[in-house]
């Protein structure tokens, strides 16, 4: 029996497992966590990429009477993830964002961020349906993969703990009505479980932030 125990082998498995659409679910771990705590400035994205991506996230979870992905700073979540554990998805984002802006210039003579909401939605729709023209990334990374990666990253950035860089001021949890994680801070009383006692959500408390 061969008894090789190689870190490289582990890495190969990990990369294989995260290939394709699963890139979307390759979630940040404490490295991105730490990066997000250090900075909300772009670490991987250019200013233009950041703006375009921010506008896209704002269509995935739009702002209404409550905060959306823009207020939650989902783009920062994605930037930090791409700087760390999700670095494998960076070429997909880079190539995709460039292709989308090229498409928008041809079709609308403007970049994505300058488009009215209805046109932005039409562009995202054609990504989702794999019908966007002139996509340069090849069959391994079709427009729908870009869209699904963006979509799932936005949703996760909106709802994951703020320390990951999104869900700013617990905005995602406010929308979902999730009052906060209590496992390490006393839990819930019997009355709160039974629904007869009020639960003060984390965003209405003084200084919490896990």
């Amino acid at each position: 029996m061969t008894l090789e125990r190689s870190r490289r082998q582990f890495l190969r498995h990990t990369v294989a497992a995260s290939a394709g659409i699963l890139v979307a679910a390759q979630l940040p771990r404490p490295l991105a966590f730490a990066a997000a705590l250090r900075s909300t400035e772009p670490e991987t994205l250019s200013v233009a990429e950041w703006s375009a991506l921010e506008a896209m996230t704002a269509q995935i979870i739009p702002t209404d009477h409550q905060p959306g992905a823009r207020e939650a700073n989902c783009v920062n979540f994605i930037d930090k993830a791409l700087a760390n554990e999700d670095a494998v998805a960076l070429p997909l984002y880079r190539g995709g964002l460039a292709a989308i802006d090229a498409f928008c210039q041809t079709r609308y003579a403007a970049t994505f961020v300058k488009l009215p909401a209805s046109d932005q939605q039409a562009v995202l729709s054609s990504l989702e349906k794999n019908t966007l023209e002139g996509w340069p990334l090849g069959p391994e990374a079709p427009p729908a993969m870009f869209f699904e990666t963006l979509r799932i990253h936005t949703v996760i950035g909106f709802l994951a703990a703020p320390a990951y860089g999104g869900n700013a001021q617990f905005s995602g949890w406010q929308v979902a009505g999730y009052p906060g994680s209590e496992h390490h801070s006393g839990g819930y009383t019997r009355g709160q479980v039974e629904g007869v006692e009020e639960i003060v959500p984390v965003w209405e408390r003084d200084h919490r932030g896990h």
Partner: peptide, 29 residues
């Protein structure tokens, strides 16, 4: 919330993004 939004509501019928999806997130509690 993440498993609710990224798994359950992402697989439920109806909008997968936009205003309709945001309303689905509000169903959490």
């Amino acid at each position: 919330p993440v498993i609710f939004g990224a798994v359950l509501q992402s697989q439920s019928p109806g909008a997968r993004w936009g205003a309709g999806f945001k309303d689905k997130l509000r169903e959490f509690p």
